[in-house]
Simulated assay, not measured.
Amino acid sequence: MLIAQITDIHLGFDPDNPAEYNRKRLDAVLDVLIEGPNRPDLLIATGDITDCGDADSYAQLKAAFSRCPFPVWPSVGNHDLRDPFHAAFPGFDDGAGFVQYAIELPELRLVTIDTLEEGRHGGAFCGARAAWLDAELAKDGGKPTYIVMHHPPIESGIEWMNTHPGEPWVDRLTRVVRRHPQVRGLICGHLHRSVTVAWEGRTIAICSSTAPQVSLDLRAIDPDRPDDRPMIVAEDPAYALHHWNGRELVSFYDHAGAHTTLARYDERLQPLVRELKAERPE
Rank of each mutant, 00 (worst) to 15 (best):
A4C: 09
Q5S: 06
T7D: 08
I9F: 05
I9H: 01
L11D: 03
G12V: 03
P15A: 01
P18I: 10
N22P: 02
R23Y: 04
D27P: 00
V32F: 02
L33T: 03
L33E: 01
P37G: 09
R39Y: 03
R39K: 13
L42N: 00
L42E: 04
L43M: 11
A45L: 06
D48S: 07
I49L: 12
D54T: 12
S57I: 05
Y58S: 00
L61M: 13
L61Q: 07
K62I: 00
F65H: 02
P69V: 03
F70E: 00
V72H: 05
W73D: 01
P74D: 05
G77M: 09
L81T: 04
L81W: 08
L81M: 12
R82G: 07
R82S: 01
F85A: 04
V99W: 08
Y101P: 07
I103D: 01
P106W: 13
E107I: 02
E107T: 09
L108R: 03
R109N: 15
D114W: 12
E117I: 02
E117T: 03
E118C: 00
R120L: 11
H121S: 04
H121Q: 13
G122L: 12
G123M: 08
A124E: 04
A128T: 13
R129Q: 15
A130G: 03
D134H: 10
A135T: 08
A138G: 11
K139W: 01
K139P: 03
G141C: 02
G141A: 14
G142F: 00
T145C: 12
Y146C: 01
H150E: 05
I154S: 08
M161G: 09
G166C: 02
P168F: 09
W169P: 08
W169K: 09
D171K: 10
R172E: 15
R172K: 14
L173W: 10
P181G: 11
R184K: 15
C188L: 07
R193W: 05
R193F: 12
R193A: 07
T196Y: 02
V197C: 11
V197T: 13
G201N: 10
R202F: 03
S209F: 08
T210C: 13
V214R: 06
L216Q: 10
D217G: 00
L218K: 11
R219E: 13
P223T: 11
R225V: 15
R229C: 04
M231Q: 12
M231W: 08
M231R: 13
M231L: 14
I232F: 13
V233G: 08
A234V: 05
A234E: 15
E235D: 15
Y239H: 09
A240C: 08
A240K: 03
H242K: 00
N245C: 04
E248S: 08
V250R: 07
S251N: 06
Y253A: 11
A256C: 09
A256R: 09
G257H: 05
A258M: 02
T260K: 12
T261Y: 06
L262V: 11
R264I: 11
D266G: 14
D266A: 10
L269S: 14
Q270L: 14
Q270G: 01
L272V: 14
R274D: 15
E275V: 03
K277R: 14
A278L: 04
E279M: 14
R280L: 15
